[in-house]
Design a protein around this nucleic acid. Structure first.
Length: 424
RNA sequence: GGAGUAGUACUCAAGUGGCUGAAGAGGUGCCCCUGCUAAGGGUAUAGGUCGUUGACGCGGCGCGAGAGUUCAAAUCUCUCCUACUCCGCCA
């Protein structure tokens, strides 16, 4: 949630910055007007309440002294009627303001490129050499089907489209990557490992920004409770500290969380229908940080390095882009995407995303810290990044490590996990 | 899933309509005495949020969450959440 005080004091600038995302944010002028009206009413209501409290106290005192209270009682009756109406208006206004703010995305960082879509993203780094093949490289779905390590047809039978069965060394590859990534971040990069619940409640989804705006993307758990399948480990892991004041000495807190993620992929019908690029269910190792405000961008860059390290070690070619304002996610102020080279697609495809939400999520989730015993509470900054998307890493390995005979070489760092150096 | 009990400040805990933003204890800070891998005495310490103010301050709301009754709710009513105990079921 954006800070309404910031909006109040810098309405024009905030609207201008938000407009860089594309879309019309002039409704925020109405928010300001409603907020003015709200405070106006609030002052009156509170004054009347103070009055009423005083008189009520008197009644108590009189009763104790066994004095007659009928006169004050009739006097106080009219006070209540007065504020009922105003309180109703107040509640409506508060609701409207809150709802509009909850649907308002984070203000993009001033220094990120202004643009419309992913074609306007800014490449800042390119690593590794794009492999050349003396044969026509196959897409991962053909490689995997030929090797009998992914089964799309049977998954469709069991569940439906956009689900996959991993089989044999395919399953082992997925599992090896999960362990490799988790070990790397937990043991070498100093993140605390978390396995959170895979079902989260509506409050958690609201706190990280999935709700209310993107409710249709979530899988509702099939009963009448307010529960949803985990769409990304970011949700349960950020919500670990919802409504908490974090001990300042613990900052920055670094978590790595492996989860299976579930997404409706609403709005992506017809896109990436072949293979496992875009699934309703996929595995992801996530990185999450809670930091002091002044350190969040340093920590963001470190997190980016930690993510890139996965691809460095797997020796997969990739590039890093800064998302432009039009491509930036709802809750984020700045995002780096890591894109891995996919030979069959002949392009780079997103495999991870590293973002700083600053205080946007902390505000929704009410996560604070105190610098010293006497200082005021401040919101922490929250960061999250992929470390990485496991399924897409499988894709990248299959396609980049494929050989002429259709077998797949295993990257050196994975051999201890795979117990083999080839999928054949 | 059934039946019951409970949720008060950092912790434990008192409190069935007004004198309770909340007794008492522990903890923590400071002081004294003592002296040193102890103990005793004194004293201080209540959060958060919203509004208002240049500031000191003042006011509203807060006793798991939400709604209600009342001039007035920690206290009464309803709904929900969580924990514990017993039963049932089960990796």
């Amino acid at each position: 949630m954006i800070d309404i005080k910031l909006l109040r004091d810098n309405t024009k600038e905030v609207i201008e910055l938000l407009s860089r995302r594309g879309g019309d944010f002039s409704y925020l002028n109405d928010v300001i007007k409603k907020d003015e009206r709200r405070r106006e009413i609030l002052i009156t209501v509170e004054q009347v309440k103070a009055q009423r409290n005083e008189v009520s106290k008197l009644i108590g005192q009189y009763k104790r002294e066994k004095k007659d209270v009928s006169e004050i009682l009739s006097q106080v009756n009219s006070i209540g009627e007065n504020i009922n109406e105003l309180e109703k208006e107040l509640m409506v206004l508060e609701d409207e303001i809150r709802n509009m703010l909850l649907e308002t995305p984070n203000i993009p960082n001033i220094d990120i490129p202004i643009g419309f879509d992913d074609s306007d993203n800014l490449e800042i780094k390119k690593v590794g050499t794009i492999p050349t093949f003396d044969f026509e490289p196959l897409p991962h779905w053909d490689l995997a089907t030929n090797l009998d390590i992914l089964d799309f047809d049977r998954a469709a039978k069991i569940t439906g489209s956009r689900f996959t069965v991993y089989k044999g060394l395919g399953a082992r590859l997925e599992r090896s990557l999960i362990n490799f990534m988790s070990d790397l971040h937990a043991i070498e990069h100093g993140y605390t490992e978390i396995i959170p619940p895979y079902i989260v409640n509506g409050d958690s989804m609201l706190a990280t920004g999935q709700f209310p705006k993107f409710k249709e993307d979530a899988f509702k758990v099939v009963d009448d409770r307010d529960l949803y399948l985990n769409p990304t480990a970011e949700v349960p892991t950020i919500n670990l500290h919802r409504n908490e004041t974090i001990d300042v000495d613990l900052l920055p807190i670094k978590y790595t969380a492996f989860t299976t993620a579930f997404r409706q992929e609403a709005g992506s019908a017809g896109r990436d229908t072949r293979g496992i690029i875009r699934q309703h269910q996929f595995n992801k190792v996530e990185l999450i940080k809670f930091t002091k405000p002044e350190n969040s961008y340093i920590e963001l860059d470190k997190m980016l390095q930690d993510s890139c390290r996965v691809l460095d070690l797997l020796k997969l070619p990739y590039r890093v882009v800064v998302l432009c304002t039009g491509d930036l996610g709802f809750s984020m102020k700045k995002t780096y995407d890591i894109e891995v080279w996919l030979p069959a697609f002949n392009t780079y495809r997103e495999i991870g995303s590293i973002s700083n939400a600053e205080d946007f999520q902390a505000r929704r989730a009410n996560i604070k810290f105190k610098r010293t015993k006497d200082s005021k509470l401040e919101f922490v900054h929250t960061l999250n990044g992929s470390g990485l998307a496991v399924g897409r890493t499988v894709v990248a390995i299959l396609e980049n490590y494929q050989q002429k005979d259709g077998t797949i070489k295993i990257p050196d760092v994975l051999i201890p996990y795979m117990k083999t150096n080839i999928i054949k």
